[in-house]
Amino acid sequence: MWNNLYNGLINGLGMGSIYALIAIGYTMVYGIARMINFAHGEFITIGAFVSYGMASLIGANPITMIICIIASMLICAIVSIITEKLAYYPLRKRNTKRITALITAIGVSYIIYSLFNIQFQEIKSSPKFLNLSNTNLTILTIVITLVTVVLLTLFINKTKFGKAMRATSENPSAAKLMGINNDAMITLTFAIGAALAGLGAVVYCLRIPYFKFSVGSDAIGLIPFVAAVVGGIGSLPGAVIGGFIIGIIQQISVAFPETSPWTPAILYSILILILIIKPTGILGKSIGEKV
């Protein structure tokens, strides 16, 4: 039993760091655009295929891994900027209801999903960049996540762009008056979120030896989203903490055969419990309505 628990913990930290990276994308976009980007999961698919493609071109070793990570992050960011400009931005300009943005995001996710479905139907094996033991791999993924989070936090708190993003997210009208281009900040947020998902995808491929076109929606699915909400949607540290917590709970549950088939029910029950006890999540804050 302790063996299972230990494995669950290690895997949980490993998967948790991946979930954390992806959850950050959900939470940042929600914070700045008040929108649940259901298409976010598809960036994982994009990242996985990009790194696979690159690896087939330039080979799989620690150095090419860095290149693949950069390529994946770049391409994800570019795709997200394109979709934002084509689909979300026109809606924002017209001040339409939130449900419209939601449906559009669903449409985008369907399109990306089916494009990959049509093109790549076979299961692909993940590029073998590194040859590490499970424990060492987990340590590496945790380090990657933590370094990324530290860099991101510094960016948001110390740089001009970061502060502008925070301003837009807290009070768009005031930010506009200060000369901040809200639309650019929103696009930037989308791009960063997508890039992080791309990074998460490569890290995922390090751990899991195969993937297919549905990796974004089936394998990973809504789990990072649950993590973001549990940690407190809108809060960056919340997404990270949520990612790790959900990752650990999931992997421990999967490690024991009695609980394994109930894992989704367990995770979503945690989501429900958090929303009932503290809707704003572990680290979130609430906003009221003025009469």
């Binding site: 026109p90 559009t104 449409g107 985008v108 399109i111 494009l115």
Partner: peptide, 22 residues
């Protein structure tokens, strides 16, 4: 249509309708 196209067309319809007549 072959597999996958259904969802593609669905998604395109969604986005077009949301843009034109939300």
């Amino acid at each position: 249509a072959p597999g996958g196209y259904q969802l593609l067309i669905y998604g395109v319809i969604l986005i077009i309708v949301m843009l034109i007549r939300p």
